[in-house]
Computed example of a mutant assay.
Amino acid sequence: MIYFLPLLAVIIGFVISLYIKPSSSTGFQLLLSFSGAFLLSVTVFELLPEVYSGGNERVGLFIMAGLLIQIFLEFLSKGVEHGHMHHGKSGKFPLLLLLSLSLHSLLEGFPLTQNEDLLHGVVIHKIPVAAILSTFLLHSKIGKAKIILFLTLFAIMTPFGSWLHNNFEFLEEYAIFINAVVIGIFLHVSTTILFEASKNHTFNASKLGVVIGGIILAYLL
């Protein structure tokens, strides 16, 4: 499942992009808010206690490093990870965007081998991101072959991160620090989603409901 579900999420996101406009769909924005709340909750409920349980004083530094890394990656990706979409028709292959999203996806795949709830959170988060990304690519006029190449590389990076963790034992020595970096990334992405998913940065009843639902579901799981 850790290899299949992230791939399926990208496929679902691509299909969604063909039938709705993510930037203007209320239902899509609610899904984005739900994914942000769920991902944040799983991070707080599961990952944070795990990395701090060992008593390593450097964990906090790596969490902040992860947050700074995500800020830099979003400078390259223009915020696709948390719902931003900028249409363009340059026809140029967006290499920097691919590199940014690939590194993000690779890192998020690392802790999935140890936490099934986090896997669900990543998958739920990946669906709207893939839909936004697919919409951007379809409007960029780079050609079907390049779109397929981009989405394929993007889709396999999360499973690849999980595969690396499963097959290279020496990485286990650094697992707590890599997980701490991922926590920083998730904290930035999820909180940005929650604060930016509504127009004028205001909460409405529907958004509040899905956010509470995401928190409760993450807790129950």
Score class of each variant (00 low, 15 high):
residue 42 V to F: 01
residue 87 H to Q: 12
residue 57 E to C: 05
residue 14 F to A: 13
residue 7 L to Y: 07
residue 156 I to S: 07
residue 26 T to M: 14
residue 144 K to I: 15
residue 18 L to A: 10
residue 203 F to Y: 14
residue 156 I to P: 04
residue 90 S to G: 14
residue 64 M to C: 02
residue 80 V to L: 00
residue 211 V to G: 06
residue 59 V to I: 13
residue 214 G to Q: 05
residue 101 L to R: 12
residue 74 E to P: 09
residue 112 L to K: 00
residue 174 Y to T: 02
residue 28 F to V: 13
residue 11 I to M: 13
residue 190 S to K: 07
residue 83 G to E: 07
residue 191 T to G: 10
residue 179 N to R: 14
residue 53 S to D: 14
residue 189 V to M: 00
residue 159 P to H: 00
residue 123 V to K: 03
residue 152 T to H: 00
residue 83 G to T: 05
residue 136 F to M: 13
residue 183 I to C: 12
residue 20 I to G: 00
residue 62 F to W: 15
residue 103 L to V: 12
residue 35 S to Y: 08
residue 207 K to Q: 13
residue 135 T to H: 15
residue 13 G to N: 06
residue 27 G to P: 01
residue 24 S to G: 00
residue 72 F to P: 06
residue 58 R to S: 09
residue 27 G to D: 05
residue 119 L to M: 02
residue 30 L to F: 05
residue 8 L to H: 08
residue 68 L to R: 11
residue 145 A to G: 10
residue 56 N to I: 05
residue 62 F to H: 14
residue 24 S to F: 07
residue 145 A to P: 05
residue 95 L to D: 08
residue 54 G to F: 00
residue 72 F to A: 15
residue 82 H to Q: 02
residue 184 G to W: 06
residue 150 F to T: 04
residue 102 S to W: 09
residue 98 L to F: 01
residue 158 T to D: 09
residue 169 E to H: 12
residue 53 S to I: 02
residue 184 G to F: 00
residue 176 I to F: 11
residue 15 V to E: 06
residue 3 Y to A: 06
residue 217 L to W: 06
residue 144 K to Y: 13
residue 178 I to P: 06
residue 120 H to P: 08
residue 92 K to P: 03
residue 177 F to M: 15
residue 89 K to F: 10
residue 82 H to N: 07
residue 157 M to C: 05
residue 56 N to C: 03
residue 138 L to W: 04
residue 5 L to S: 00
residue 54 G to N: 07
residue 100 S to L: 01
residue 120 H to A: 13
residue 172 E to D: 08
residue 3 Y to T: 02
residue 178 I to T: 03
residue 11 I to G: 05
residue 106 L to S: 03
residue 32 L to T: 12
residue 34 F to I: 04
residue 207 K to V: 08
residue 141 K to E: 12
residue 81 E to Y: 05
residue 35 S to R: 10
residue 106 L to P: 01
residue 113 T to H: 10
residue 11 I to V: 14
residue 176 I to R: 14
residue 201 H to N: 15
residue 202 T to H: 14
residue 61 L to E: 07
residue 56 N to R: 11
residue 133 L to M: 15
residue 219 Y to S: 15
residue 93 F to W: 08
residue 185 I to Y: 06
residue 41 S to E: 09
residue 157 M to K: 09
residue 130 A to Q: 02
residue 157 M to Y: 00
residue 83 G to N: 10
residue 10 V to H: 03
residue 128 P to A: 04
residue 76 L to N: 08
residue 134 S to F: 14
residue 173 E to Y: 14
residue 204 N to H: 10
residue 125 H to V: 07
residue 77 S to V: 07
residue 193 I to Q: 05
residue 66 G to P: 12
residue 204 N to A: 01
residue 186 F to Q: 09
residue 23 S to H: 03
residue 210 V to A: 07
residue 159 P to E: 01
residue 169 E to M: 02
residue 33 S to D: 02
